[in-house]
């Protein structure tokens, strides 16, 4: 049931009485989100409960997975397969922080990308703000981050290193662009997944590839092709600046970070708008 009163459905989309003026679409998008706050929360809780309810390890999965990944890299480093250059803090700590920050993006994006498809029958039968599905799914990235933060704390204690207190706060705030980037891409990927079903498989490979090619689990230094390419990689800045702040309260990545953050906001807005305009067209094709 929609709460919009006096609406006219036309080939160009729904027209609600009383809302007009410039930035009409943006206004409608925001109004829709505000009216769907509760729905976003419900869907988020639903997904969260459903995800962890019937697994024996429950929430601990979120901790075991990064431990296994980091363990593999430590092993490769020690055996000399992979030569990781020195970082300011113990390497496992560096890797765990990087992976945890990165998980905001990967877990959230995977959830967003499949959210429309999973809700398929609902979309074609019930009229509700579809964007709430994406926002709800994006919350899973945040949950994953919070659970894994426990791991970071343990790692700090274990290695006897303290995070930079002021930097910790700034670092957390500086995760917002990464989140916005994820939601923006999630909007677009969820639409694409509605038409091309193989997006999920592709996404896992792509995310793994980005992780390995970006300085997330290990620093990429020197004058290699990869290092030069990473100057243009927004994830380089979106992950490393928050990590630097958490670890030492300062970062050299500021310029790149600001550009990347602006890029994220654009991605977020464009993705959301595209999604908003497309939602009625997707419903007839999903």
């Amino acid at each position: 049931m929609n709460n919009r009163l006096n609406v006219t459905y036309t080939p160009r989309g729904p027209i609600s009485a009383g809302i007009k003026g410039p930035f009409l679409v943006t206004k409608l998008m925001v109004l829709e989100l505000l009216s769907a706050k509760e729905l976003v929360w419900r869907l988020f809780v639903r997904d969260f409960k459903a995800k962890y309810r019937q697994s024996a390890l429950g929430v601990t999965w979120a901790i075991v997975m990064p431990l296994v990944t980091v363990g593999m890299f430590i092993g490769m480093n020690r055996s000399g397969i992979l030569n990781i250059s020195d970082v300011d803090i113990p390497y496992p700590l560096y890797a765990i922080i990087g992976l945890t920050i990165w998980s905001v993006f990967t877990v959230g994006l995977s959830a967003c990308a499949s959210s429309l498809l999973i809700a398929g029958s609902m979309i074609t039968k019930i009229n509700f703000p579809k964007a709430s599905l994406i926002f709800a799914a994006s919350g899973q990235g945040i949950v994953e981050f919070i659970i894994r933060s426990a791991l970071i704390m343990l790692a700090f204690l274990y290695f006897g290193v303290a995070p930079h207190l002021g930097g910790l706060f700034i670092g957390l705030i500086c995760l917002i662009p990464l989140y916005l980037m994820m939601v923006g891409m999630g909007f677009i990927l969820s639409l694409v997944a509605g038409v091309l079903r193989d997006i999920a498989n592709f996404l896992n490979i792509a995310l793994m590839g980005i992780m390995l090619l970006s300085p997330i689990l290990y620093p990429i230094t020197g004058d290699s092709l990869l290092a030069r390419a990473n100057i243009w990689n927004p994830f380089n800045y979106l992950v490393n600046l928050p990590r630097d702040f958490i670890v030492k309260g300062a970062s050299d990545f500021l310029t790149g970070y600001i550009i990347s953050a602006i890029l994220s906001i654009i991605f977020f807005y464009v993705g959301w708008k595209l999604f908003y305009l497309a939602q009625t067209k997707i419903a007839e094709r999903i």
């Binding site: 049931m1 929609n2 709460n3 009163l5 006096n6 609406v7 006219t8 459905y9 036309t10 080939p11 160009r12 989309g13 729904p14 809700a119 029958s121 609902m122 979309i123 074609t124 039968k125 019930i126 009229n127 009625t280 067209k281 419903a283 007839e284």
Partner: peptide, 28 residues
């Protein structure tokens, strides 16, 4: 179309009020 799931390609539908639907209930 009346439910607003998708838009008509021609013509228009004016609706004054809330729309409820009993269409494959339990979806979701």
């Amino acid at each position: 179309m009346i439910n607003g799931i998708f838009m008509p390609d021609r013509g228009k539908i004016e609706i004054n009020g809330r729309v409820g639907a009993l269409i494959e209930i339990g979806a979701g």
